[in-house]
Amino acid sequence: MEAHAQELKKELDATLKARRELGPEYEAALVDSFVEKVDTQVRRRLAEQRLAAEREGRAPGAAAASGEGNFGERFGFAIITLVLAIPLSAIGAAHAGLDGLLVSWGGIVGVSFIHAARSGRFRRHSPDSP
C-alpha cells in the first residue's frame, strides 16, 4: 500500500505544481486528470485484491458482504479521501469562500458515508443474530 500512496502523493505534487505554473484557468482539467489517476489506482488495487481472493479460494467481496471488511481497502479509501480533500478544499475555498469549503467537505463526508454504508459499517444487528 505504501507504494500506491507514494505514487499518488507524487501525482498530487505534480498536479499542484502544474496548477501554479499554468494558472487557475487549467484547474478543472488538472483536477479531472488527477481524479482519473486516482480512479485508475483504486481500480488496479481492487483488481489485485480480487485476484488474491480468488487465489485463496474465497469469494471476492465476501468479507465486505459479511460486514468484516478489508482493513487495507478501508485504509486505502481513507488515505485517498484525505489526499483528494486537499485540492478540493483549496478549489472550493478559492472560488466560493467558506460556502465552497463547506460544500467540498459535505461531498467528502457524503462519499465516505456511502462507502461505509455499502461496506456494511452501519448494518443493524438484531438481538437474536450472532
Rank of each mutant, 00 (worst) to 15 (best):
A29Q: 15
A29T: 15
D32Y: 06
S33C: 07
F34Q: 11
V35G: 04
V35I: 11
K37H: 05
V38P: 11
T40M: 09
T40F: 05
T40A: 12
Q41N: 10
Q41A: 13
R45M: 05
L51N: 03
L51C: 00
A52E: 12
A53K: 02
R55V: 09
E56A: 13
R58W: 09
A59Y: 08
A59P: 08
P60E: 09
A65Y: 06
N70L: 11
N70M: 10
F71E: 07
F71V: 09
R74C: 08
G76I: 00
F77L: 04
A78I: 11
A78Y: 06
I79Q: 07
V83D: 12
L84G: 02
L84P: 04
L84F: 01
A85D: 00
L88A: 04
S89P: 01
A93G: 00
A94D: 03
H95D: 05
L98V: 04
L98F: 02
D99E: 06
L101E: 00
L102T: 01
S104T: 14
W105T: 07
G106C: 04
G107D: 06
I108V: 11
I108L: 08
G110T: 10
V111C: 08
V111H: 08
S112A: 15
S112T: 14
F113Q: 07
F113I: 09
I114L: 05
A116H: 09
R118V: 08
G120P: 15
G120W: 13
F122A: 05
F122S: 03
H125R: 15
S126I: 13
S126T: 15
D128K: 15
